[in-house]
Amino acid sequence: MLKEKGGLSYNTKMEIETMDIKSEFAERISEISGANLFKCYQCGKCSAGCPMAESMDILPNQIVRLAQLGQWDEIQNSNTPWICAACLACSVRCPRGIQIAEAIEAVRQICLRNRNSERRLGLSDEQIKELPPIAIISAYRKIAE
């Protein structure tokens, strides 16, 4: 959260507090995805090989870390889950076998199921005409309720 004082904007919450560190969230992801995020040792190979990383505000390895520490708000406000193209490059290269793409799918699912995502896929008639069915169906499957 940014606040302003005397022309200087500063962050009001820099610290991760003990009470925030709840593991239920990582467990929920694990239930949906089958990925054990606690195995992560933060090598970053997922992010290094991610084709979409440049467009993400938080890298995949950081998503995993945030999930370990129960920082759901930050994940929820991130564009990363919605940028991920589920190409699986991260999952297949993870040295510890964590299914990262699957975990990110779980984040999407949690958002969509909670209906707290504003990311509804509204396609215009023009777009629907332009796009091949394979693109429309997969987009609906991934990023819309």
Binding site: Q42, C43, G44, K45, C46, S47, A48, G49, C50, A53, L59, N61, Q62, A89, R93, P95
Partner: peptide
Amino acid sequence: KVGRVYQEGDKVIVQGVDT
């Protein structure tokens, strides 16, 4: 950790991350 290494022209491209 580096994700990928590939040749491009006479350079070797290293695609990594600063975690």
